[in-house]
């Protein structure tokens, strides 16, 4: 501090100190009001960019998570349909065993078999909401017509289960699960039912008997499909679990990057308020009791 002090220095210095203290107080008040350490990019540019990227990642992750939940419901619906289908096939097996007996009342069994075929057809045309489960991309129309002809395609609807990862299929190829195409010992389930019903109508024991091993095979084919569903559901479930923990740590990182430590912020606010008050009080003393006033009296 220079030895000679001009009058202007006293006023300018006072103003500077008050203004500086006010600035610090306002800055602390902003942090306390927003509870954020970083309120704008210039507060900490690298931190701001990192936090913004993480927040965008969270938003994308949340969106994917919602989609994954929908996919999970879609696959659960498919699994329920396949489980029902297996029950229908097992019941049909039982009917086929009875019908294969030479003394069986096939006219009675026929009605049951036709009812089961109707249920099987309905199940193969199962929908989740307004979307067909087994028609590939042809989600609006039923996958099979009344005669059991496949109307859909073999495309897989895929969805993202993690940002930037390869989308995974959520529907199942009806031609593989129901028609056995592409499988080593695949069977055509609608065809089995057609043959079985025809055998019953025509009292053709041989035709009925030929359906028995095919029904067993159909059951295994559906089991195979269910296994695939379970595998994908497990993959989706893992993605959900993984995202849940990733989300927690990302949200934590965002908070650590931009949120203010409440204790620190309020301590600083209290300190800055005290400094501001001190600056005001000191200047009041210095400015109102100027020695020049005494000398000029």
């Amino acid at each position: 501090m220079p030895t000679r002090v001009s009058t202007n220095q006293i006023y300018t210095g006072g103003l500077e100190h008050i203004s500086q203290a006010r600035g610090h107080e306002l800055s602390s008040a902003e942090k306390a009001q927003t509870n954020k350490e970083v309120n704008r990019p210039s507060d900490a540019p690298a931190t701001w960019v990192r936090a913004s990227n993480l927040k965008d990642g969270l938003s994308t992750g949340d969106n994917i998570q919602r989609n994954v939940v929908i996919a999970n419901h879609f696959m659960t619906a498919a699994d329920t349909a396949l489980t029902q289908l297996q029950e229908f096939i097992q019941r049909t097996q039982e009917l086929a065993i009875s019908a294969a007996d030479g003394n069986a009342r096939r006219d009675m069994i026929l009605k049951d078999a036709q009812g089961l075929w109707s249920s099987v057809l309905q199940t193969m045309n199962s929908r989740y909401g307004d979307r067909g489960l087994f028609g590939g991309f042809q989600t609006k129309a039923p996958a099979f017509d009344a005669e059991g002809n496949f109307l859909g395609d073999n495309n897989a609807i895929r969805i993202e289960i993690a940002a930037g990862s390869e989308p995974v299929p959520i529907n199942f190829s009806a031609s593989q699960i129901f028609l056995g195409m592409g499988l080593k010992e695949g069977v055509d389930i609608p065809m089995i039912y057609k043959n079985f019903i025809q055998g019953l109508q025509e009292n053709n024991v041989e035709l009925i008997q030929s359906c028995l091993p095919q029904l067993i095979q159909a059951n295994e084919q559906i089991s195979l499909g269910r296994g695939e569903v379970a595998g994908r559901m497990s993959q989706v479930s893992r993605a959900l679990d993984s995202y849940a923990s990733e989300r927690t740590s990302t949200a934590d990182s965002v908070s650590q990057l931009e949120d203010a430590d409440a204790y620190k912020v309020f301590s600083e606010l209290a300190r800055d308020q005290t400094i501001f008050q001190s600056a005001l009080m000191t200047n009041k003393k210095v400015l109102t009791e100027a020695p020049a006033d005494i000398l000029f009296k």
């Binding site: 220079p2 030895t3 001009s6 009058t7 300018t12 020049a292 000029f296």
Partner: peptide, 24 residues
């Protein structure tokens, strides 16, 4: 800038106390 102005003031600035004494 503040330091320079401060230094300039300490050399060239008017001190009312000093001027009061000079006046006397």
């Amino acid at each position: 800038m503040s330091q320079l102005n401060n230094y300039r003031e300490s050399v060239s600035g008017v001190s009312l106390e000093e001027e009061a004494i000079n006046m006397i």
